[in-house]
């Protein structure tokens, strides 16, 4: 009878030890790979640069724009009002605190949207909510908002309104370039702008 007890104890001990070394599956908040893949395939995480600009101009307190480029790039040029969390320090405690704030809409951007999307996938996997990616990134933001191109008079009214909004927003951020003194210098610089606009137009299609 004693023997039986002994066997029972040993058995329970061995199995208990076995459980100790089982693969640890404790990441409760983590989203399963299958589910994450479907989320990744959904385009709803992308916000257009117009939507974000609109919220910036209105000083929406629930919006945090996060620049995931390096600190040096951030210093050279960044969207006014954004904060810098370089991609390699994404998982530091201070950054995770921002991610964990519930009522904020966190929007990632990088030069394009590749690095921003990587940040999004990692954060989404860890279970963070209300995170987004700015579509097209900084390059697209710059080209649509700062360098907004004037539509032709024949364009529909929506296009003209969109242009006026973009122009207004860019003046909100950077002031009106063609006011005040310094006319001559201004003029030469204005010419540069026009020149660049021409270059930006891609030639499509050739013929005989």
């Amino acid at each position: 009878m004693n023997k039986n007890y002994l066997i029972l104890t040993i058995l329970a001990l061995i199995l208990g030890f076995g459980i100790l070394f089982m693969p640890d599956i404790k990441h409760n908040n983590e989203i399963k790979p299958e589910k994450l893949l479907l989320m990744v395939d959904e385009p709803s995480r992308f916000l257009s640069s117009d939507v974000i600009t609109d919220r910036l101009v209105k000083k929406d307190p629930a919006l945090v724009l996060i620049d995931v480029r390096s600190a040096a790039e951030f210093k050279t040029f960044a969207i006014p009002g954004s904060i810098n969390i370089p991609l390699d320090s994404l998982l530091e405690t201070s950054s995770l605190e921002i991610m964990g704030t519930k009522d904020l809409d966190k929007v990632f951007y990088s030069n394009a949207d590749v690095a921003a999307d990587q940040a999004w996938i990692i954060c989404k996997r860890m279970g963070f909510e209300t995170i987004y990616v700015m579509q097209g990134g900084l390059n697209n933001w710059f080209n649509t908002i700062v360098k907004a191109e004037k539509p032709a008079d024949t364009e529909p009214i929506e296009t003209v309104e969109l242009y006026q909004f973009r122009k207004g927003a860019s003046q909100y951020f950077y002031g009106n370039g063609d006011s005040t003194a310094g006319q001559s210098q201004q003029n030469t610089q204005k010419k540069t702008t026009i020149l660049m606009k021409k270059e930006a137009g891609a030639s499509s299609g050739g013929g005989c």
Partner: peptide
């Protein structure tokens, strides 16, 4: 590369020049 900045800082300068003349 897709992740290269194409932002033209010169354009920005023309825009901000009125304030930092």
């Amino acid at each position: 590369s897709t992740e290269i900045s194409t932002v033209d800082l010169k354009v920005l300068k023309t825009m901000t020049s009125s304030t930092t003349q």
